[in-house]
């Protein structure tokens, strides 16, 4: 709308569509929750459907990885390259620690689907990192 001085005031529609960034503390808290419980960050910022789809995808992949006798890596300094596998695994958040406590994810190398299972466990953690970054962008108003 023209204000008479040559400047245009944003219409109410564009004002509504413009994303409003959250403060950084709230954003980090939401992202942390999304890391611990996959998909929770999107649910907390009001993206229910997207969040639930992410939850199903990550948890399904994690469960399939365990069912295929994949290996969950711990923090082992005697094998330095295993640190990368550990970082990928802990991306799944709380399910990783639950599986560790239940002695799941030991990994049976002779099992036919061992490699696939281990890869599923890595990738579900890495996907959850991407999901958390997506939630960060939405919370900061960088994405609609």
């Amino acid at each position: 709308m023209d204000q008479g001085n040559g400047q245009f005031e944003p219409t109410s529609r564009s004002a509504v569509l413009e994303p409003q960034p959250m403060n950084m503390a709230a954003t980090l808290a939401i992202c942390s929750s999304g890391w611990l419980v996959p998909g929770l960050a999107h649910v907390l910022i009001g993206r229910w459907i997207r969040g639930l789809i992410f939850t199903v995808c990550v948890l399904l992949m994690f469960a399939l990885g365990l069912a295929m006798h994949g290996k969950l890596y711990g923090l082992e300094f005697d094998e330095p390259l295993h640190v990368f596998a550990f970082i990928a695994n802990i991306g799944a958040g709380i399910p990783y620690w639950i599986a560790e406590r239940m002695n799941l994810g030991v990994g049976t190398m002779t099992w036919p689907s061992y490699d696939y299972g281990t890869t599923y466990l890595w990738v579900c953690g890495l996907l959850n990192y991407l999901i958390v970054l997506d939630a960060f962008d939405i919370a900061q108003g960088r994405k609609p």
């Binding site: 789809i53 992410f54 995808c57 990550v58 399904l60 992949m61 696939y116 890869t119 599923y120 990738v123 579900c124 996907l127 991407l130 999901i131």
Partner: peptide, 8 residues
């Protein structure tokens, strides 16, 4: 694998 990753 492809189905889940492509969805995300």
């Amino acid at each position: 694998f492809a189905l889940i990753v492509s969805t995300v």
